[in-house]
Design a protein around this nucleic acid. Sequence first.
DNA 1: GTGTTTGCAAAGTGTTTGCAATTTA
DNA 2: TAAATTGCAAACACTTTGCAAACAC
Lengths: 138, 138
Amino acid sequence: MIMIRPFRPVLDRLTAAGLRPTRQRLALARLLFDSGDRHVTAEQLHQQAVGNGVKVSLATVYNTLNQFTASGLLREVAVDSRRSYFDSNTELHHHFFNQDTEQLIDISGDAVAVSHLPSAPDGTVIDGVDVIIRVRAS
Amino acid sequence: MIMIRPFRPVLDRLTAAGLRPTRQRLALARLLFDSGDRHVTAEQLHQQAVGNGVKVSLATVYNTLNQFTASGLLREVAVDSRRSYFDSNTELHHHFFNQDTEQLIDISGDAVAVSHLPSAPDGTVIDGVDVIIRVRAS
DNA sequence: GTGTTTGCAAAGTGTTTGCAATTTA
DNA sequence: TAAATTGCAAACACTTTGCAAACAC
């Protein structure tokens, strides 16, 4: 099945999220959203931006990733207690995590079924279900 | 169903794992294994040890948690990119993570069924499947 | 006694923050 | 021009490490 994600120019996304489309945010948004689903750390995105001639500081990359996540443009994936990974795919889905290369690979939401979900502890509601399949070189 | 875990004195566990049963390791092992399943951060375990009159440094707690994990006595759970959680239950199971209290709660392995597991990417094998159900106060 | 482990303080890694300068609307 | 954003450097939280003293066998 081919998923067509509603195309949305990055500028629209930013303004819709209430974020001023500054030069840095536009450049980072293009890197994140204009080439399919991506999984990046702040350091990786910063390197890529700088490599593409975008002048942006690492601090701004961190702030931008956090703002994008808070606005729902990105999703944070907890796989490693050392660093944060940000996922440009915000739809329901899961991940393979290659422990050798430290790379994430999407698993579409309906490729995995989590059944018999126990009910949340008293006084709590379910906020999300993360499935991470850890793999390593065979 | 009541699960009886094969009882094993902490001293035996340590020597079986090839770790010298030092005063610090014995004390930490007792805190970790003598009262059911536990989920702790290094800081929490250190505080508890000190609170119980055990003289041990935070650095040793970190080293010990890592050694125990490497020996299979503990399992590390990645839920938060800030700190590491260690789980004294090494059997196959999953977790609720309360995002308000930052506490983990076990979900027994057979309470959740992950079906249709996609096969691992070429050249890799599955090493483990983590299911984390994030909850928050309702 | 010999090799292992500990504790301390220092260093390391990833991330956030204060604030003046710059940019956006 | 007023408010938001940036970049830098400093601060921060968590974790690891080097090394001398203490300990286990």
